[in-house]
Every structure is written in C-alpha cells, then in structure tokens.
Write a protein that binds this DNA or RNA. Sequence first.
DNA 1: CTAACGTTTGTCCAACCGGTCAAAATTTTG
DNA 2: CAAAATTTTGACCGGTTGGACAAACGTTAG
Lengths: 209, 209
Amino acid sequence: MESPAPRRTRIQQEKRELILEAALEVFSANGFRGSTIDQIAEAAGMSKPNLLYYFRRKEDIHETLMQRLLDTWLAPLRELDDIGDPMTELRSYIRRKLEMARDFPRESRLFANEILQGAPRIMPLLEGELKTLVDEKATVIKGWMRAGKIARTDPWHLIFSIWATTQHYADFDVQVRAVLGIDRGGDGRFEDAARFLEQLFIEGLKPKA
Amino acid sequence: MESPAPRRTRIQQEKRELILEAALEVFSANGFRGSTIDQIAEAAGMSKPNLLYYFRRKEDIHETLMQRLLDTWLAPLRELDDIGDPMTELRSYIRRKLEMARDFPRESRLFANEILQGAPRIMPLLEGELKTLVDEKATVIKGWMRAGKIARTDPWHLIFSIWATTQHYADFDVQVRAVLGIDRGGDGRFEDAARFLEQLFIEGLKPKA
DNA sequence: CTAACGTTTGTCCAACCGGTCAAAATTTTG
DNA sequence: CAAAATTTTGACCGGTTGGACAAACGTTAG
C-alpha cells in the first residue's frame, strides 16, 4: 500500500515541510485547480523545478496534505469518550472543534474544498475510517440517551450539526465577518460563538423529564 | 448601474438560460477556476465560440449566476416575519432552508465555493445588502427575546447556526451520505435531519422559566 | 584534490485555456 | 425571393501551466 519507508535526509524533511506549509496556504485560499506550482514554490521560497525535486507532481503535495489533515482533523472526535459526564464530554467536543476552526482555518477550508468537489481523492477514507469512527461514537451517544443522560435524538445528525456549526466559522469566515461588521467581527466573535453554541446544544439536548 | 434593458430576442433568452443552467452544473461541481468554457459549452450543447456569443467572458456567466442566486437564496430569511408566533416562524425558516439545501444543492455549493475563496466577487453584497438584512432580522429576534418568547442568546450567531446546519446537507452531501451509509443515506436523510434540527432548535431556544 | 552524491536552477515543451475573428449558415424581414 | 440581421462554427492566437531535463552548484568523503 504505502511506499516502504522513503528514507529521507534531514534537509529533505525540512524542505518537504516547508513546501507543505506553503501549499496549505495556497491550496486553502485558491482550491486545488486554482493554485499553481509557481505560487506554492514562491510561497516556499524556492524555484519551481526545485519544488518538483521534492514532490514529483502537484497532486502528490495535495495528497500528502490531505492524509495528514484527516488524522488531526478527527482527533477531537476520537477523544469523545464514554467515561466522563455526557454533557461535559459534548461541551468539550464542541469547544475543541470551535478552537480548531479558530486556530486551523486553512485546514478546515482545504477539507471543505475537497468535499465540495465531491471528495474525489478521499472518498474511500470517508466511507471507511470516518464512517467507522462516527458509527462508533454514535453508539456511545445512544448509550447516553438510553441512560437518560441526554435527550433522545439522532446521534449522526447531532454530530453533523456540531461539525457544521463549528466549521462554519472557518469556512465561511469572510461572510461571518462581513455580517458582524467591524465592531462585532473582531477577535471576540469566537467567544460569542462558543457561548451561543454551548447554550444551544446544552439546552437543546437536556433530557426531557 | 445596470445595462439599461438589453432588449433580447426569444432565442437569446432561451440560449442564455440554457447556458446558465449548464454553468450552474459545472461551476458548482468544479468551482470557478476549475471549470472551463468548453465544459460549460458542451454541457449546454453548443460550441465554445457560440457560447461566447451570448456571454462575452467567463466571468459574465458567473456574475449573472451569482446575482440571481443571492435573491432566491435570501428569500427564506426575508420571509421571517414579526407577525406570527416566534417559535413557529423559526421552525418554518429552518424547514425552508433545509428544503432549499435539498432542492437546490448546486446553488448552495456555488455560493459556498465563492465564500470559501474569500468572496472576491460578492464582498460588497455581503457587507451591504446581506448585513442589512441580517441586522434587521436580528432586531426582530431580539424583540422576541425581550418579550420572553424565546431564550436570550446572540441572534446573529443563531442565524449563522441555522445557515450552517441546513446548508451542510447540500455542501457536504457526499460526506453525509458516506457516513450514513447505503441504508440510512437515502432520500430519508432530509427528513431525519429536519426532525433533529427542529428538536435541537426548539428545545435549545425555549424561554427559561 | 577529486569522485560521488545530493541539491538547485535556466531552459524548454506540449497541453490547455480564455478569447478573437472572419466566414458560413440560418433566420427574419421587406 | 432577396436583402438584412442574427446565429453558428472552424481556425487561430497569446498566455499560462504542469512537468521534463540536463547542466551547474554545493557538499561530503576517500
């Protein structure tokens, strides 16, 4: 499956890292087809042929980026665990996801771009790894519902709604800022969002009687 | 501002419509830069020069599409009115938005694509028309809160969360279907989503004591 | 010093893409 | 029918882009 241990020098590691950082910047702002190798090379401070020495094809950069992305992107959901108090667990999950939207908006946009285009390069991962993980967590949530800890609803759509509301602040950032205006669209918007989402989900999921 | 009444023949009207329909299909699937005039022309069943006879530049097609889009896209929010019961109004708004995600996913994706790229072509509209409309509706919602009809929260973020959760089912459709799997990812997913969102928002916004 | 290896760059190419143009085909009008 | 106006197309152009390549540069080890 994977190229077996591509044995790389320290310089290669560093340069590849530099390129990936530059590519994340460029891809997330312009999409895959909207980005050129030249742009990435310039952002990484090297010539185009030099960049192509480290990544043979434009697609290779994108692929490497996507693979790394998925791991870190799903980390918060993996942490959602059965041991703590359900409401607390959900609140932390929402907070962590919102923090990721705030701290890693480029990653969020890269991912959104890929899904919007129909996920041509990561469809197997969605149907495999992602589905498995979500199904597993849905079972956990169902347990909480059966135990009367949170209100009964559809766990899958609950997860979707958390993804949607939190990632919205990364993917639709320009719209959020435009609507909030100069005064309310500053750094405080994430705290406002956190307060609102916490209230919405906590109240919306309180077990009924 | 606008070209004054471009006096078009019936054929021109029809062909332009045909092109716009084809362009919506192509743009929403590949983004602006990811789409070629040839693709659109082929989807519209005509040659590239012929298409360029009706729209001089690729950007003109996109611009026309975006202008039309915004009107229909904001219609549900415009309908949100002060006269009815607040909870009923909000529930209808959510339902209408979700129906739009179901019935016009291409429009939703076109819009998402534009925002993701930083909204280069519609920024003025976001800061102008859209912000004005949202501010106006936020005032209405604030009135409901003061009257004790719904819980007190941030009206802007409430609107954002409705946008995010409903449009998610259009923009991230492939992911939703991949995660739900064959059995649960069929046509019923919108009804499940409607039920879940209704519960989340209704319970989450019930006035406290 | 020099051979070997890894790195960097200038140059080039073929494919693609947005858009032009003039001529041909078609439709409309008198 | 014939002239005028509109619509359609093939051929073409200049700029961009992904990628190839060989030569140059630098570094390390014998």
